[in-house]
Amino acid sequence: MAFGDSLVHGYGLPAGDPFPAQLQARLQDEGYTDVSVLNAGNSGDTTAAGLARIGWALADDPDAIIVVLGANDGLRGIEPSNTLQNMDALLAELERAEIPVLLTGMLAPRNLGADYAEAFDAVFPSLRETYDPVYYPFFLEGVATVPELNQADGIHPNSQGVATIVENILPKVEELILRVRERSAAAEG
């Protein structure tokens, strides 16, 4: 399951082009024919909104979750300590549910000042230390601030931008799949 905001939901993208759909297609191409990627994205979600609906998402009984949250917190200038608190609670819930996680990091917009950026940018690495998820430091790596990979708003990736994200994050997704398979084998054995 890809769980997150508009970056998962596929804001402004045609059907078949959001992150979960492109990721599933790429995984199929790599031979992961038994893997499907559910789209649990909700445009506009902050970390607080994601925390509020994680229980709903878990009702779909995912084997693993890719968490993509934080962009809207940064865009809205939400206090980084609130972002950390929300993400900590969300990851704690996933840990209790024994669901392997790929945590994707987010960076603050630089127009909010150096102090805010420093505090916000520290949120996701600190969560990595606490929960030991598979970790991808910046979901928009190689796409943010590249005009030809973004829609006209300069914030949301276009189809080519999503393809770049999928290519960049694929090794971490494969690491997540390996964790799921190892856990399953240990449970059977």
Rank of each mutant, 00 (worst) to 15 (best):
R53L: 15
M1E: 12
M106F: 07
G41V: 07
T33Y: 14
N72S: 01
G70T: 06
N158C: 06
L112C: 01
Q151M: 05
F3N: 07
I177F: 06
L58S: 11
I99A: 05
Q28S: 13
S6H: 04
F139D: 02
I165R: 04
I177Q: 00
R76L: 09
T47C: 09
G105C: 02
N42S: 10
Y32D: 10
D63Y: 06
A119S: 12
P125N: 06
P14L: 10
E118L: 10
E93H: 12
P133S: 11
A2F: 06
V166P: 00
R183G: 13
F124L: 02
A2I: 01
A21Q: 15
A40P: 02
G154T: 04
D121A: 10
R96D: 12
W56M: 10
N42C: 14
Q24Y: 03
G189L: 09
A144Y: 11
R181I: 09
V143M: 09
A114Q: 14
H156Y: 07
V8K: 01
A15F: 08
D45C: 05
G77N: 12
A52E: 15
E118N: 08
T104F: 07
G74Y: 00
E98M: 10
P80K: 00
V180I: 14
G113K: 09
A40N: 09
A92C: 05
A97H: 09
D88A: 13
Y136V: 05
A119Y: 07
A49R: 15
M106H: 02
V180P: 05
G161M: 08
V162F: 03
S36Y: 07
P147C: 11
L94P: 04
N39W: 01
G161D: 04
V68W: 04
G70V: 06
G16D: 10
L84E: 13
Y131Q: 06
A71Q: 09
L94R: 06
A144T: 14
A122L: 11
G50D: 07
A117K: 12
F3P: 02
G154M: 08
P171D: 09
L51E: 14
N82W: 11
D121H: 08
N39P: 10
A97C: 06
G142I: 05
V35M: 02
G113F: 12
P137I: 03
G12D: 07
A57Y: 03
G105L: 01
A64N: 08
A152G: 11
D61L: 11
R110L: 12
H9G: 07
L94Q: 07
D115G: 09
L178W: 15
A52F: 08
Y135R: 08
S81K: 13
V123C: 08
G70F: 04
I54H: 00
L58C: 04
F120Y: 14
L69T: 04
N168V: 06
A49Q: 14
D115S: 12
A114L: 15
A186N: 14
L69E: 03
T83P: 01
Q151L: 15
A108N: 04
A21K: 06
W56A: 11
P20Y: 03
N168R: 15
L7Y: 08
I78D: 10
A25E: 14
A57S: 13
Q24T: 12
G16N: 06
L27A: 00
D34G: 08
G74N: 02
R96W: 10
A71V: 15
L13P: 08
I65A: 15
D60W: 11
R183V: 07
N39V: 05
E93N: 12
R179P: 07
S6K: 08
Y32W: 14
Y136K: 00
E141T: 15
